[in-house]
Design a protein around this nucleic acid. Sequence first.
DNA 1: GTCTATATAGCGATAGAC
DNA 2: GTCTATCGCTATATAGAC
Lengths: 202, 202
Amino acid sequence: MIQTRSRSEVKRQQILDAASELFVSHSFDTVSMDRVAQLAGVSKQTVYSHFGNKEALFEAAIGGRCSAYQINEALFSGEDVNTVLQQFAQLFSLLILSQEALSVFRTCIAQSLTHPQLAEIYFEAGPEQVISLFSEYLAQLTAQGKADISEPRFAAVQFLKMVQGEQRMRKELNLAVLLADADHQRYVQSCVDMFIRAYQVR
Amino acid sequence: MIQTRSRSEVKRQQILDAASELFVSHSFDTVSMDRVAQLAGVSKQTVYSHFGNKEALFEAAIGGRCSAYQINEALFSGEDVNTVLQQFAQLFSLLILSQEALSVFRTCIAQSLTHPQLAEIYFEAGPEQVISLFSEYLAQLTAQGKADISEPRFAAVQFLKMVQGEQRMRKELNLAVLLADADHQRYVQSCVDMFIRAYQVR
DNA sequence: GTCTATATAGCGATAGAC
DNA sequence: GTCTATCGCTATATAGAC
C-alpha cells in the first residue's frame, strides 16, 4: 500500500513537472492532455484521475511556480541608501528579465480572461510581495530621516515600474531587438539616481 | 466588374471587422474560422479565399488596430512644464487603461511566441511612437534650459513606466480588485511631482 | 466569388480490462 | 491506479455546384 501511494505520488509529480513545462512555454489551448501524458510518461487517464480536468491541472502546475521571490535580502543589509537601492534594483532587474518570470507572466496574461484565479495567485505571490517589502523599507528610511517619502507604496511602485524599463517591455513582447546589457545597466543606474534626487531630504 | 470588386471589398472589410473584434476579446486559439465567418455574415470559404489561412487573417486584423495613438497634442501646447506633464500623464493614463489598448496588448503578449511579427508591429506603432515623441519634448526642455536631462529617452521611459503604475498591472492581469480612481489620480500626480523634482534645473 | 457539404485530424473526457 | 481503446465533438481546410 505504501508502495502504491509512493508510486502514485511520483507519477503525480511527473505530471506536474510536464504540465508546468508545457504551460509556461505554450498557451493553455495549445497544450493537449495527450502531450502532458506523453511527456510525463503516463497514460492520459492517469492524468485525469489525479487532476480531474484540464483547468485543475493548469492551476496546480502554474500556481506552484508563483512562489514568492527572494530579493529582499538586499533591502535590510544595513548599507547606505544608494548602495541598497543599487543592489536591490540589480536583483529585481535580474528577476523580472529571467525566462522563468517572463514565461509565468505571459501565461497569466494570456489566460487572465478565461482563468482569472491564476492571475490573482500570481499577483499576490509575486508583485505584491515585492511591493510590500520595498514599501516597508522606504517607510523605514523616512522614519530614520534619510528620505522624505509621504506615500511609501506610491514610491515603491514608481521605482519598481521604472526599473523594468524598456528592456522588460521588449522581452515581454518577445521582440527580436533588445537593448545591449550595458545600456540597460546604465538605465537602471539612472533610475536609482533620479529616485534619490526626487526623494532626498531637502 | 466594378460591382463585383466593390462587393468583394465590402465583404473583406466585414471579415476584418469581425476578426478584429473576436481576436482582441478572445485568444487566437479559441476564435474559430466558423465564428469569424458567422459574425461577418459570409461563408467560411469566403474568409479563406480572402486571407488564405488563420494566421494571415490574424495579422491583418490585429495589425490594423496598432495604429499610432494621438496623445502628442498635449506635449507641444506651449504651456508650462508642470501643466504639460500633468495633461500628458492624464491622456497617457486614459489610453493605457482603456479596454481597447489592454485587449490589443494582451493579445500581442499571448501570441508573442507563436506570432512574433505581431508584437513587432504593435511596439513600433504604439509604445515606440509615444517614447520617441516624449523624448523629443524632454530634449527640447533641456535645450531651453527648463530641465536638466542628459538622456531624454531614459527619462521618457522612466516617466511612462511610472505613470502606468499599479493600476495598469492590475488591469493587465484582469484582477477583480482595482485601485479607486481617486487613488490612481493621486498616484499619477505623485509621479509628475517626483519627475519634476528629479529633473529640475538646480 | 460565393455558397453548401464534407474530408481529415485533433481535442477533452470516458469506459472497461487488469 | 493504471492502462488501451474509443466516444462525441469541434476545429482547420478543401471540393464542387452555382
